[in-house]
Simulated scan of single mutants.
Amino acid sequence: MNIAITPNFLSLQTLNVNLTQVCTIVIVAVGMTLVIATGGIDLSVGSLMAISGALAPMIFMGTILGIDPVWLAVTVAIIISVGVAGLLGAFNGWLVAKFDIQPIVATLVLFIAGRGIAQVMTNGNLQVFHVPEFQFIGLGRVFGLPFQAIIMAVIVIGAAWMFRRTVFGRQILAVGGNQNAAVLSGVPVSRVKIAVYTISGLLSGIAGLIVIAINSASDANLVGMGMELDAIAAVAVGGTLLSGGRASIWGTLLGAMTIQIVRYTLLANGVPDAAAMVVKAAIIIAAVWLQRKARTS
């Protein structure tokens, strides 16, 4: 079993399937990369996707607000949904920065409560819709390219540029590398932490909208389920130190694509998805082991 014998692996259809399935993972993983680079972790990304995905249809279908015309309702829905996810991300950052709560504990709050909030918002009901103006973000194409892939590319390029060219990017790495030294150097540690969790929330909100646009439905029980693990896996496989202080956006992209290709190859060769998840876990363990070996050598 390998890529070479996977049926139609190099076909345009297969490449398109892998690309569209990896976009949301990459988008969330970029935010996760920023958080992990500061020495943190964000377990709430999947729940924030669910909240964003639950709120948007309620707005553009008129359950709340009742805005016309449709294009305006869609615009407002996107802005508010992503904004709410960003505010909840900022709440995570506030808990971490102001109360010095361990990130895994701080973000566990919304990991648990966030999905419950989304379920309460929708009464646990599936929201089915047909709104082409909104669904374009998940199903539309520009010059033959999936629009969601264009969104992903803009986010990846922007984040990579930020790390290489901006003071904020250097501050993120400084906080993750040695927080005490960063404080002495005048880095606004609290603001940096709140900012990265806010960005993670915003990107999770965007990913949640793409998911429901693809499915033409929003299910608060399923949207974003397990996404935190996929994002962390992409970051780890991509070479970003889980202890903070070093980050690679391009590595995160390659990590997400590697995991997706391995999963697709296994499924295409008749390996059950449960077994594919075990292989993915093995890849994560190997990536962490290699990081540890590199640090001690």
Score class of each variant (00 low, 15 high):
Ala281Tyr: 13
Ser200Tyr: 01
Ala160Ser: 09
Pro272Cys: 06
Ile214Leu: 13
Tyr264His: 11
Ala153Asp: 02
Tyr264Ser: 10
Asn180Val: 11
Phe163Gly: 10
Ala213Met: 07
Val196Leu: 05
Ser190Gly: 14
Ile259Thr: 03
Val192Ile: 12
Gly245Pro: 02
Gln171His: 11
Ala256Cys: 05
Ile150Glu: 02
Gly176Leu: 01
Ser200Gly: 12
Gly169Trp: 00
Val192Met: 01
Lys280Asp: 04
Ile194Phe: 00
Gly169Val: 00
Thr240Cys: 05
Gly158Thr: 06
Gly205Ser: 09
Met257Thr: 10
Val278Tyr: 11
Gly186Leu: 08
Ala153Ser: 15
Ile199Cys: 13
Val175Trp: 03
Ser200His: 10
Leu266Pro: 02
Gly224Pro: 07
Leu254Gly: 00
Val271Ile: 15
Val142Pro: 02
Leu139Phe: 02
Met152Tyr: 10
Met257Ala: 11
Arg246His: 05
Leu254Thr: 02
Ile249Asp: 12
Ala159Ile: 11
Ala181Val: 13
Asn221Gly: 12
Ser248Val: 04
Gln260Ser: 15
Tyr264Gln: 10
Glu228Gly: 10
Trp250Ile: 15
Arg170Asn: 14
Met162Val: 08
Ala153Glu: 02
Gly176Tyr: 00
Met257Trp: 08
Val223Leu: 12
Ala268Leu: 03
Tyr197Leu: 07
Ile150Met: 03
Ala275Lys: 05
Ala217Arg: 07
Gly138Pro: 01
Trp250Glu: 10
Ser216Trp: 08
Leu253Glu: 02
Asn269Asp: 00
Phe168Leu: 14
Asn221Leu: 12
Leu202Lys: 09
Phe147His: 13
Val183Ala: 06
Phe143Asn: 14
Ile212Phe: 12
Leu254Val: 14
Pro146Asp: 01
Ile194Arg: 02
Val156Thr: 05
Val189Trp: 03
Leu222Pro: 03
Ala195Trp: 06
Met227Pro: 07
Ala213Gln: 10
Phe143Asp: 13
Arg263Asp: 07
Met257Asp: 01
Asp273Pro: 05
Ala274Gly: 03
Thr198Ser: 09
Ile157Thr: 12
Glu228Met: 07
Met225Gly: 07
Val187Cys: 03
Gly245Asp: 08
Arg263Glu: 13
Ala236Ile: 09
Ala276Asn: 04
Ala207Arg: 08
Ser243Leu: 11
Asn215Gln: 11
Asn215Tyr: 14
Gly140Ala: 15
Val154Asp: 00
Phe163Val: 07
Gly158Phe: 06
Gly140Asn: 09
Lys193Ile: 15
Gly239Leu: 04
Gly251Arg: 10
Gly208Trp: 05
Val237Trp: 08
Val262Tyr: 04
Gly208Arg: 12
Val175Glu: 02
Phe143Ser: 15
Gly201Ala: 07
Ser185Pro: 09
Thr258Leu: 15
Leu202Gln: 09
Thr198Trp: 01
Leu202Cys: 15
Gln179Asn: 05
Gly270Val: 05
Ser190Lys: 03
Thr265Ile: 11
Ala217Thr: 09
Arg170Gly: 15
Ile261Gly: 06
Val156Asp: 11
Trp250Phe: 15
Gly140Thr: 09
Thr240Val: 07
Asn215Pro: 08
Ser190His: 05
